[in-house]
């Protein structure tokens, strides 16, 4: 099976927020919760960079390790998913996540904070694939339909790539060689403990 990853080619990203919109719409993510977001570093200065960030589906995921109810699991495609039935909304996964992926329906960490929500790599949750229950809790399951995450599919500049880590790394490498310079595989070292060797 594939080892699914995301890569954002910061050289190409134009901060159009198409990926965040695609994600919001595909999974009907409510207001205030952003599974994918665009962060611009050095905004407005020469040398600014925009990076599209969601859950990176880390190797040896920190969120899964710290969860006090062990509600995370890793699929055969190395996608990090969680069960909203078990989650108690403690907020620990957000402290551990290097990329700020987990989100909560309510702000205060007391009482009913709601169930954590994060990028599912468009592959749902523990419920049966493509079931209504799965859709209501986690959004659509494109992976089960043989499709890749919509954010990357919709990316207007193809800055954001999703798919088997080796394949997308190869595409990125080809680009780097073609244009003569790289933009850094943002987050890869932290998430996967490796970077794209050029």
């Amino acid at each position: 099976m594939a080892r699914m990853k995301f890569i954002c080619d910061a050289e190409r990203c134009i901060e159009c927020n198409g990926c965040t919109t695609a994600c919001k719409n595909e999974h009907e993510v409510p207001w205030g919760v952003n599974r994918r977001r665009l962060v611009t570093v050095n905004d407005g200065k020469p040398g600014e960079r925009s990076v599209s960030m969601a859950c990176m589906h880390c190797t040896d995921a920190p969120c899964a390790a710290v969860c006090p109810v062990n509600c995370f699991y890793t699929t055969g495609d190395a996608v990090v998913l969680h069960s909203k039935d078990l989650c108690i909304g403690c907020g620990y996964c957000f402290y551990a996540c290097p990329f700020g992926a987990p989100q909560y329906p309510r702000v205060g960490n007391f009482g009913s904070r709601g169930k954590m929500d994060k990028c599912t790599y468009c592959s749902g949750g523990p419920e049966a694939d493509l079931s209504v229950a799965e859709y209501e809790k986690y959004g659509s399951n494109r992976l089960a339909e043989g499709k890749l995450p919509l954010c990357a599919e919709m990316c207007s500049t193809k800055a954001l790539l999703a798919g088997d880590g080796e394949v997308i790394a190869q595409i990125y490498k080809t680009r780097v060689i073609t244009r003569g310079y790289g933009s850094g595989a943002w987050g890869w070292k932290t998430a996967y403990r490796e970077t794209v060797a050029i």
Partner: peptide
């Protein structure tokens, strides 16, 4: 959400 990356999460973990 403006924090793009904080590797300290690994240390806290």
């Amino acid at each position: 959400a403006a924090v793009l990356e904080q590797p300290q999460g690994r240390e806290w973990r």
